[in-house]
């Protein structure tokens, strides 16, 4: 095997820094899937940047051998957008959890979908804030009780996939962490698909939501393939059981690229408009 092939094996995308996630956490599998997906896409580690916010899953970038950016809570998509627009040559993936992405970062989620910059957003959804010890997130069931919500939130569950569709995401998929190969396939497709690709990964929290171990029995492949009709995709997703995994929507909206002048001028060329 030559050097290039070695460099592009999944193992080459792992850093030597070990995760702090609880043993049993779904995020380990997602990490493994990231390495496989990068290997499938075939970009070198230094050509990839994984950007995250704050939370258990947001620790992911450091565990990869690609470049990483571990920023502030809820702003991964903003940082990733800036990076991708400034450096369109890089493959940029934003990742994080449901609290980071749908609560504190909710506004950026909407506008990242709208803007349709060519990046991939991966949310490891476990319906709970893990790093702050088990508070309800936007995807937590209304009757789930915790210290902060002793009687449950009573709030309607946020539906990221449908929201993403409505806001304009160009690729929408659901995956399950228990299937790292399947996640890797979807991630690789998401990265390759132009525009804003959104992948929601059901990733159990064994510490605060041990019952999520049962997701293994609940998940099943999406009965039909991806559509390019957002309305059809939204109807399907709204009426499914929340556990069908696969690529659900593949759009063809034009990718956002801000104007960059063709003729490159020097700063001194801009002085003219000020001259008396």
């Amino acid at each position: 095997m030559n050097d290039m092939a070695v460099a592009l094996q999944p193992a080459a995308y792992k850093s030597d820094y070990k995760p702090i996630w609880c043993p049993g956490c779904g995020d380990y599998s997602v990490l493994s899937a990231f390495t496989k997906a990068f290997s499938m896409v075939g970009r070198k580690p230094e050509e990839i940047v994984v950007v995250s916010g704050i939370g258990c899953s947001s620790r992911l970038p450091a565990y990869l051998s690609s470049y990483g950016f571990h920023g502030v809570h809820g702003r991964a998509l903003a940082a990733a957008t800036g990076l991708k627009l400034a450096r369109p040559d890089l493959t940029v993936v934003a990742s994080g959890g449901d609290g980071d992405g749908y609560s504190i970062g909710g506004n950026h989620f909407l506008h990242a979908c709208r803007r349709n910059v060519d990046l991939t957003y991966v949310v490891m959804d476990n319906h709970v804030y893990g790093m702050t010890k088990g508070q309800p997130s936007p995807t937590t069931e209304p009757d789930w009780q915790s210290k902060l919500s002793p009687t449950g939130t009573g709030l309607r569950v946020f539906h990221p996939l449908v929201v993403a569709l409505a806001a304009g995401a160009n690729f929408v998929a659901r995956a399950f962490s228990g299937d790292p190969n399947g996640v890797a396939d979807i991630l690789a497709e998401a990265i390759r698909h132009p525009g804003f690709s959104f992948v929601e990964i059901l990733s159990p929290c064994v510490t605060f939501r041990p019952e999520q171990r049962n997701w293994k029995q609940a998940v099943h492949p999406a009965p039909v393939g991806a559509t390019d009709d957002p309305a059809k995709a939204a109807r399907r997703i709204l009426s499914d059981d929340g556990f069908n995994v696969g690529i659900l929507y593949r759009g063809n909206r034009p990718v956002y690229r801000p104007p960059v002048g063709k003729a490159k001028k020097q700063p001194a060329d801009l002085e003219k408009e000020f001259e008396v």
Binding site: V49, A78, A79, G82, L90
Partner: peptide
């Protein structure tokens, strides 16, 4: 955060 991301790049 966008400018932080761009500058990191």
């Amino acid at each position: 955060n966008m400018i932080v991301g761009a500058s990191y790049g």
